[in-house]
Design a protein around this nucleic acid. Sequence first.
DNA 1: CATCAACCCTGAGAGC
DNA 2: TGCTCTCAGGGTTGAT
Length: 271
Amino acid sequence: MPELPEVETVARTIKPDVVGRVISFADLRWTRTLASPSPALFKKQIAGQEILDVSRRAKFIVIRLKNYNLLVHLRMSGDLRVGTGKIKPEKHDRVVFHLRSRGGAESSLAFNDTRKFGRVWLTDDPETVLGKLGPEPLEKDFTADWLFENLRIRKRQLKPLLLDQTFLSGLGNIYTDECLHIARLHPLANSSGVTRKQAQVLRDAIRSVLREGIRRNGASIDWVYRGGDFQNYFRVYGREGEPCPVCGSKIQKLTVGQRGTHVCPNCQRLR
DNA sequence: CATCAACCCTGAGAGC
DNA sequence: TGCTCTCAGGGTTGAT
């Protein structure tokens, strides 16, 4: 489920339930979920750490602890779930953080991840993990001028470039298809050919789609469900053969950069 | 530097 | 029902 709006929703959801709690210990149930450090050091360092804040950077959930930062990437099927009282791990729980409140109440924060693609880092310097990420699309520094200039410099297919987290952070397969449709740009178009005007429209489309995704608590697809309903408002994603909401042409599905890609053949012309 | 295939995994849904 | 096949929101790595 995890693109920027879904990750933002997860972070906002768990924050009030975990800030102020202390991690008594971590139960690492699938070793490979831990990216770094070693399991032994991880368990030693995290025990006794108070959770000070929960935020999001790109598609990472950043959990600020007293002396470290706990970074979580949900990848394809990850989720963070808060549990109260007696803890019995659920199917696909990969790491379970056992928590204690000041009053002594027990609860838990579980990283549940069916496909095991998700990763967790514990580090004192989050920049070692987040350092190469591109700008946040909802921040002020993501301007049309910046986008225009950087699309021009990189000579790449538009969609794979927008998915490249070192170029721009937070977009995933769904939201990229949606914003390219709004901007009437073809996913295979060369980034260097995008005009200043088109860059302006694309920049605004990216921000509006992400904001609406957040407003609707993200999109819920397949069995990875979290209560969002943005999936009911897709313009092209997952709508192959259905009419384009703008012109009525049949939405087509193609493969771009090994990802399923949805376009309106009339609104999004290659040239 | 850009592009692509393989890989990391499990499970849902389609087709037979 | 049950089997096989394809596909899935992400990202890394190594080859070309």
